[in-house]
Design a protein around this nucleic acid. Structure first.
Length: 110
DNA sequence: AATTTGACGCTTT
DNA sequence: AAAAGCGCCAAAT
């Protein structure tokens, strides 16, 4: 538990909670919003370690190309897609989320 | 201390 | 247009 990531993890969770229903964002965008633009993978790690699946809509976080993460821990990508569709997010025939569902993320600090 | 791994993303084939 | 390659950086081994 170093000083690193208390901040980073908190920021990640805070950003994810800001994603409105019916929208999604990418790991890279979250990394950028937290001020660590090259930590997309770490964002994924933070979500995997997500202690509060109920509060944090981690299913709204997807790949930059609009596809879903292959290792979604909460019921698989199938479940993730279902949750997104319930939010009103639509997929194209290639299984990718259409661009209009990506939301803008503003930088945040503690 | 060194190497491998992983909920990623951009560039090059 | 699709796939492979390369870079990224903390965590785990």
């Amino acid at each position: 538990m170093n000083s690193f990531d208390i901040n980073f993890y908190k920021l990640v969770y805070a950003v994810v909670q800001k994603i409105p229903k019916g929208k999604v964002t990418t790991y890279g965008m979250i990394a950028q919003a937290t001020g660590f633009k090259n930590m997309a993978r770490q964002v994924g790690f933070a979500l995997h370690a997500n202690p509060h699946p109920d509060q944090i809509p981690c299913y709204r976080v997807v790949f930059a190309d609009g596809s879903l993460s292959q290792a979604f821990a909460f019921g698989g990508i199938n479940k993730q897609r279902q949750l997104l569709e319930e939010d009103g997010v639509l997929f194209d025939k290639n299984g990718k989320i259409m661009p209009q569902f990506f939301c803008e993320i503003q930088e945040i600090t503690l």
